[in-house]
Design a protein around this nucleic acid. Sequence first.
DNA 1: TCAGTTTTTAATCATTTGATTAAATATTAT
DNA 2: ATAATATTTAATCAAATGATTAAAAACTGA
Lengths: 203, 203
Amino acid sequence: MAKEKLDSSTEEKIKNAARIIFQQKGYAATRTRDIAEEAGINLALLNYYFRSKERLFDLIMTESLQGFFQSLRSVFDDPSTSFEEKIELIPENYIDRLTENPNIPIFILSELRNNPEELIKKTGAKKAFLNSIFIQQLQEEIEAKRVKPIKPLHFMMNMLGMTVFPFVANPMIKGLGDIDQAEFEELMQERKTLIPIWFKAML
Amino acid sequence: MAKEKLDSSTEEKIKNAARIIFQQKGYAATRTRDIAEEAGINLALLNYYFRSKERLFDLIMTESLQGFFQSLRSVFDDPSTSFEEKIELIPENYIDRLTENPNIPIFILSELRNNPEELIKKTGAKKAFLNSIFIQQLQEEIEAKRVKPIKPLHFMMNMLGMTVFPFVANPMIKGLGDIDQAEFEELMQERKTLIPIWFKAML
DNA sequence: TCAGTTTTTAATCATTTGATTAAATATTAT
DNA sequence: ATAATATTTAATCAAATGATTAAAAACTGA
C-alpha cells in the first residue's frame, strides 16, 4: 500500500529528469534515452510508468504552465494589496521565481507556437487575467486620474516584457553586454526595484 | 555561365522553403522532407545543393541573425539622428519588421539556448552594441542631466522587452487578452507611438 | 516459505529520418 | 549534332529513435 513519497521513487526520478531535459531542449530535440540516462533508469521504465514520450511531455508542460500562471495569479488576485504594492510585488515575485527556474519561459513560449489553442486552454488564463483584481485596480486608478489611461494588455506586455524577456533572451543579453551569468543575475536583482520605479514614472 | 537569379531557381526554392519551415518549427522539429515538400522538389536535391540539413540550417540562421541585428544597427549607428529621434525610430523600425516576419525572434532565441557562444559570435553584436552611437548618446544625455542615470543594458532590456517580447509571446498575449491576430497587430501599431512616450516618461 | 504481484532489465521491433547512389533527364559548349 | 556536364529522380541505406516483449528480479501478503 505504502506508495513511496520520496524523490527517489522511480516515477519521480523519471519525472524530474524529464522536466530538466524537456525544459532545456524542448520536445522535439529531446530523446527518451536522454531522459532515461538523466534519471539513471532503464529506458523501458519510461514507457512502463508514463506510456509514451508525449504523455510524459504533456504532464511536464501542464505542470510548467500552471506553475507559471499560478505565481502570477497569486499576486494578481490578492485583494489585500494595493495597486501600487502589486506593481512592486509582481517583478519581485517573478524575478525570484525565474532566477531559480530560468528555462521555463523560453520552454513554454517555444512549445506554444506549435499548438497554441490546446495549451492556452490548460492555463485557464483568459478570464483569470481580464477579470483579475489587479486589472480592476488598474482601471480604478485610471478613473481616479491617478494613472494615465492605458489598455490592460499594453500594461501587461510592458510588465512581462520588462521582467520575463531578459530571461527569454538571456544568451543574447549576455552577448550584447559582454557579461557572464553572475553579472546577469545581479542585473536581474537590480531590476526588482528598478522596474516598479520605471512603471510609476510611466503611469 | 548565366546563373538563374530568379526566386524560382531550385537552390532558391529550397532556401526559401527552409527559411519558412525552420523559423516556424525550429531545427529539431524540422524534417528535411518537410522542406522538400514545401519547396516542391525531390528530397535528394536538398543534399545536392546544400550537403546536409545542418549546413542549410546554418545558412538560414546566419542570415536571420544578421537581418535581426542589421536592422537594429542601422538605427543605432546612424549619426544623423538624435537620441530622442532614435527612441522613436527603434520601436517603429522593429515593429514594422517583426510584423512582417513575426517568427524570427522566437526562432533565434529558442535556437540560441542550444549553442549560445557559437551563434552569438556570428552576430558580432558585442562591440557593435556597447560602442554604438546610440549608447554614446545615451551617456551624453545622462551626463547632461537630461536623462536619469540608467545602465545601457537595463535600457536595452527595456527597449527589447517592450518591442520584441510581444512577438515572442504572441500566442500567450492573444490568449490572455482574448483577441485575434488582427487585434494583436493593431495593438502593435499603437505601440509604435506609445513606447517612445513611455520611455521619455521613464528617463 | 512461497505463490502472486510489481518492478526492472536486456533484447528487439518498426518507423522515421538524414543521406547516398545509380540511372535518367536536361542543359551547355563545341 | 554530339559529347560533356549539370540537374533531377526513384530507390535504397544506415542510424536513430519511440516503443514493446519476454524473462528476470524484487517485493508483498498469507
